[in-house]
Structure formats: C-alpha cells, structure tokens
Write a protein that binds this DNA or RNA. Structure first.
Lengths: 219, 219
DNA sequence: GTCTATATGGCGATAGAC
DNA sequence: GTCTATCGCCATATAGAC
C-alpha cells in the first residue's frame, strides 16, 4: 500500500485508476471499455491495472459498488428525514440534479448494467444496508396528512425518479428531437427542471395553488 | 411449425434471423450479443448471418432502425391527433404500456445505444421523418386552453416519458428494493400505472378534482 | 511498483465444398 | 442457401526483467 519511492513517487496510482475507471466505465459501459482505455485515461501502463486489481471484473465491481453506495443513501435519506413533505421533494430533486450534472452518464450506465446483470445488485444492497420500508411507511403517512388517500407511495417515487432521471437517460435523443440539438438550450431546460418537477408534484398532490417550498421565482 | 422437411426448405430464414437478433440485441446489448448467440436463438448456422447481412454492424443497424421506426411514430402521433388533451395523455400511456409489456428491455437498450453512439440517430430521424415542432406547438395551445400558462410543453413530455419509462428502465432495481423482488406485485404495479400516470398528470395540470378520462375506479 | 514481451481465448469474417 | 474449416484480430491476462 505505502511503497517507499525515490524515483517515482506516486502512491496515489490507485486513486488515479479508480477515477479513470469510473469515468471510462460510465462513458463506454462495462463491455465497451477496454483496460487499455482506462490505463490511457489514468496515464499509466496497462498492466498496472492488473497489479492493483487482479482483473477487469474485480476493477469493475469496485467501481460499481462505490457508485451505488454513493447514490443509494442519497435517495433514501432524502425521504427518511423529518422535514415537511414538499421540502423532501425539493431536496431530493436538487440533490439529484447536482449529482447528475457531474455524472450525466450515471443513470444509463447503472440501469444498463443492472438490467444485464441483476445478480450484482443483491450483494450491493446488503453492503449499503438501505431500509426502504421505513421511508415508504413515512411517505404513506405524510401523503394522507396532505389529503391524498389510498395511493401507493411507490407511484410517487416512480414518478419522481422518472421525471428526474429521464432528461439524462434520454438526453441524446430528447435534445436532438425536441431542442434541435441545441446544447445550451437543453442545459437551461435541465436547470429549469429543479423548479418544474417539484411544482408538478406539488400541484398533483395538493390540487391547484402554490404549496410549500415554492417561493423563489415567478409563479 | 411446418414439419414438411425434405432437405431444408426455409426461405423465411431472414425473418427468423431478424426476430432472433431483435430479441438477443435487446437483452444483451450490441456489445454483449455475439453472432453465435443470435444464430443459436434463430436455430441456424452462424455463417448464415453473414450471408443474409454482411456483418454484425449491418445486422444491428437493420434491427435498430426497425425498432425506432416503430416507436417514434407512436410517440409523435399520439400527440398530433386532434383529440382532447387528457385523451391524448391516456392514449399515449396505454399505447406505451402495451408496447413495453411486450418489449421490456427496449428502453434501456435504446437509450444505452444512443448514449454510446449518438450519430446513429441522425440517419434514423431522417428516415422516419418526425416533426416534433408541430406536436409541440399544438401542445402549447392546448395547455393554455386548459389554463396552464407559460409552461414549456417539453416539461410535460419529459415528465410523461419519465413516468412511463422509469418502471421499465429501473425495473431490476426498483422491484428488488421497493417490492422485495416480488414479480407479481410489480406487474400489478405496472398495470396500475396505466391509471395512475394520467391521473397524476391531470391533477397537476387541472388542479384538484377529476378531469376527463378518469372514470373507472375509486376517486 | 512499473515496464516489455508474450501467451491465451473469443469473436467476427471469409473461403470453399456441397 | 447452407454447411465446415480456417484465418486474423483484439482484449484480457500473466511471466519476467528492471
């Protein structure tokens, strides 16, 4: 781990590898990314990858687990807090907007990988230790106190995740078709969604009018 | 099917190939699928694939174009009709629900592929000849007549597509975390969304109360 | 720890017999 | 049109020098 190094003092090689691997895997996918690609991105020799992580699979597992361990808690915790409902929604949307802005390829990458290899999930879920039941129960209660009765909260979650993730998952297609491939316009659109998505949810749940957590810009 | 078999008379080999290739490509992705996989699925010899379609790339392009040509029009036409707004929403949701039920891997596959290789899109869009501007203009007008002012209709589209597609894109993950991996419960959930999504949109756009196209079950 | 050289296997693609 | 046999490439992985 800590090698004495007079001539080539970079014990942070491992860090560079992880960083490069994350980037390359997300952009090209597990199969599309070659070890050479990752080595190039990290600026090191290819065989070093095998020295630090025995093979491609192990390297990938490390990256994948790391990414999901970072994403899952954010998701659940946003709903596990004791803030008012619409406040949770707003926090959730903004947290993900920031996360996705920095990792735009993350959703496609994750879902493609899980879809291809669902077994990988089991281990990771254990490793992270999320408890969605708790958050779900809380949601149900809060929705009822908002006057929404008999609605499975998982519909809300699915709606929310869909609305937040779609602009990233379908970006290449959506930007080209609905924005004439205007990147700047699309980025403005992404920014707008931080406001539009919570408002949409709010209106759907509360009926018309402005709910809490909507006081910044124009109506 | 046809037990008639003197030597090997099957000129519908091409059809079998296309069917098999579509299935295998969707399930394993372009890179994950090998020509051998496709040949096996079609029940033919591997070199026959090269006889009918020169190489893997050409075979893939055929499949991909075919799939998108089937999906795009459905999407745009649902909004280009002159039915009332909520009717369009309902039709859109149900059409996609049916399509996705039969091709659950389609969204991940398409978005992954486009994300990896955006260039492929340009040709296909031309080939299909969609005109989203028209549908967008119409949407804006209809929303205003519903009392929704100053809202970019593309937010509605993104919300709708996200809500419809997410349960399929994130199925492996969502079913495991929020449904304890209960497949039957999840399929019930998918069925429910045909009703829940239009209602959610309706409430968001009209405020509270029941809009059109919502008369089947409990309030 | 880092490099060069090399082994191994899989897959796409073609040639050629039938 | 369909098969068998084979070629050549590329990516993973390891051996071994420094």
């Amino acid at each position: 781990m800590q090698p004495e190094k007079l001539e080539n003092l970079e014990p942070d090689t491992e860090r560079k590898i992880l960083e490069a691997a994350g980037k390359v895997f997300m952009q090209k996918g597990r199969l599309g990314a070659s070890m050479q690609d990752i080595a190039d991105e990290a600026g090191i020799n290819r065989t070093l990858l095998h020295y630090y992580f025995r093979n491609k699979e192990k390297l990938f597992d490390t990256i994948f687990t790391k990414l999901l361990s970072q994403v899952f808690p954010t998701m659940v915790e946003a709903f596990a807090s004791d803030r008012p409902f619409m406040e949770k929604i707003r926090i959730f949307v903004e947290t993900y907007a920031d996360l996705l802005k920095e990792n735009p390829y993350l959703p496609v990458f994750v879902f493609q990988e899980i879809s291809l290899n669902p077994d990988r999930l089991a281990g990771i879920i254990k490793h992270v230790g999320v408890d969605p039941d708790l958050a779900l129960k809380g949601l149900t209660k809060e929705m009822e106190s908002l006057g929404v009765h008999g609605m499975d909260p998982r519909h809300i979650i699915a709606n929310l995740l869909g609305m937040v993730l779609f602009p990233y998952i379908g970006r290449a297609l959506f930007q080209k078709i609905a924005f004439q491939d205007d990147t700047e316009a699309y980025e403005k659109f992404l920014e707008d969604r931080k406001e539009q998505v919570p408002r949409f949810v709010n209106m759907a749940l509360q009926g018309s009018g402005q709910g809490p957590g909507q006081s910044r810009k124009h109506p």
